[in-house]
Nucleic acid binder design. Sequence first.
RNA 1: AGCAUAGAAAGGGCAGUCGCUAAAAAAUAAAAAUUUAGAGGAACGUCCGGACUUCACAGAACAAAGCGCCGGGUAACACCCGGUGGAAUAGUAUAAUACUAUUUCUAAGGAAAGCAGCACAGAAAAGAUACCGCCCCAUUAAUAAUGGAGUAAGGGUGAAAUGGCAGGGUAAGAGCCUACCGCGGCAUUAGUAAUUUUGCCGGUUCUCUUAAGAGAAUUGUCCCGCUUUGCGGGAUGACGUGCUAAGCCCCGCUUGAAGCAAGAUCAAAUAGGGAAGUAUUCUAUGCCGUAAGGUAUAGGCAGAGUUGUUCGCUCUGGUGCUUUCGGGUAGAUCGCUAUAAUCUAUAAGUAAUUAUAGAUAGAGAUAAAUGAUUGCCGCCCCUUAAUUGGGGAACAAAAUCCGGCUUAUAUUUUUAUGCGUGUU
RNA 2: CGAGGUGUGGCUCAGUUUGGUAGAGCGCUACGUUCGGGACGUAGAAGUCGCAAGUUCGAAUCUUGUCACCUCGA
Length: 133
Amino acid sequence: MKSFSLSSNERIKSKKDFEDIFKHGNILFSFNKKVKASFIYIKEADDPGVKIAPAVSKRAGNAVWRNRIKRLIREAYRLNKTGLVSYCKSNHISLKIVFSLNYISKKTAPNLGLIDLTDSVKDLLNKVEKKLC
RNA sequence: AGCAUAGAAAGGGCAGUCGCUAAAAAAUAAAAAUUUAGAGGAACGUCCGGACUUCACAGAACAAAGCGCCGGGUAACACCCGGUGGAAUAGUAUAAUACUAUUUCUAAGGAAAGCAGCACAGAAAAGAUACCGCCCCAUUAAUAAUGGAGUAAGGGUGAAAUGGCAGGGUAAGAGCCUACCGCGGCAUUAGUAAUUUUGCCGGUUCUCUUAAGAGAAUUGUCCCGCUUUGCGGGAUGACGUGCUAAGCCCCGCUUGAAGCAAGAUCAAAUAGGGAAGUAUUCUAUGCCGUAAGGUAUAGGCAGAGUUGUUCGCUCUGGUGCUUUCGGGUAGAUCGCUAUAAUCUAUAAGUAAUUAUAGAUAGAGAUAAAUGAUUGCCGCCCCUUAAUUGGGGAACAAAAUCCGGCUUAUAUUUUUAUGCGUGUU
RNA sequence: CGAGGUGUGGCUCAGUUUGGUAGAGCGCUACGUUCGGGACGUAGAAGUCGCAAGUUCGAAUCUUGUCACCUCGA
């Protein structure tokens, strides 16, 4: 299995999972408060691994901008996920994370780049791993 | 050259690395790997019209919604093309006003079926009305004041004000009466005025046009006559009828409902449903039975369908137990992308468009793919001695599919119109 | 895919049904009151009624189009 891929099995799809995460999940913020992560985990799971989904509010911007942000978040996760995935696999933990933006909209940041998001996503992944310990 | 407005076309290119979705063939328990394809002119909005799918459809009435000059195009339309009438603007001539236009707008049937409204001002705003004025009467010391009755000839208001003139008549007035005239209305020239000139709109008849409409003549209503389609005569008189229907409304025409989360197939979990058998069960009447009760018919009541409502029509019947059956949610698969498609040529047509021939094209996701990054070239801006260095690239992303409409759009190209400068 | 609502001074709203004067509260400004401030009193300013076109003598109100925002259903 390739280390930098992100197939459809690694994404959250069902409506139930989203409801669970937003109702009962823990919330963490990145160091610059740009990105928010809500997550839920089960220890001693049958199918260990990490599943993620990006979420952008409808009020943040138009469809083009929202699609772009989702793809950037996915890209940032894809390039930095290796450590967390291997940790979860070795400890039999099934983890589900939803990334969403905080106080950022098309008006405040019309040309958000990948570099702006990479650091905060990296920081969030480290924080989640610490919490699991 | 430049600027403005309107229309049309285009909406950066090539290569590398990492990743996503779909398809293909080989292999297969699965995965990986390979090849190919992968957002728009508006995909936006969801404002119209269809295709397609499911449900419904004995019939009648009503409601509701939509449309409303004419002809053509189209699968269809509230779209498009061509025309008619109206309004605005500009120019030219003018007494009003008319004519012209590569311009702009136009939901444009009916106001004499009825209802409603018409601020302010004004006497009165629609079956009229009395502020000033005029006139009569009463009271008071009164040519004045107050009160009452009558009066629309005169006044001024407003976007909009209800035959003319002369005489009679009267307290004063009034088509109240008479003659002449007008006889649907409006504006206007000349004239002191009667009167008259011209134009516009309404009705009727005729002619022309496929039609909207245009042109000519004529002008209340009824009757009679004739040299019969127009002229003459007589009688009659409510002399009354402004604007708004994108207020209600009337008239004419059209419309079954819902939408791909339509719908079809497979189908966990949980709860419940149908059918058969059996026990029990509302009212009335008939029959059987000594009785308990059984059975038949009718009715009531309740529910469902007729997907706007009503009538009408059709169907079902409460509860317990036993047996048996399938529907169906999560989820999965299909629907799911070839087409009223686009371009070119020829022919028909003023045009929209149509016919024939040839060529071209190839997304199909479902918490939802089409991305990130690097280099080179091209474009724009700033800067520099220097392509030296730096920065920028609109609007906006498929969600069943088409035809339109609407709105957003950096930059480039191009067409038309206008402005203004320079040159000859 | 379908249904509905809102837009009016700086803010929160009324007025739209039935067309004709744009209004209320809070806030703002000035003056008075007070040693000073607050509260109170008096006066005043502030609105292309989201935008465009049409109907009408006349439009915040009627009609059509359009922009933005919000809510709901399958």
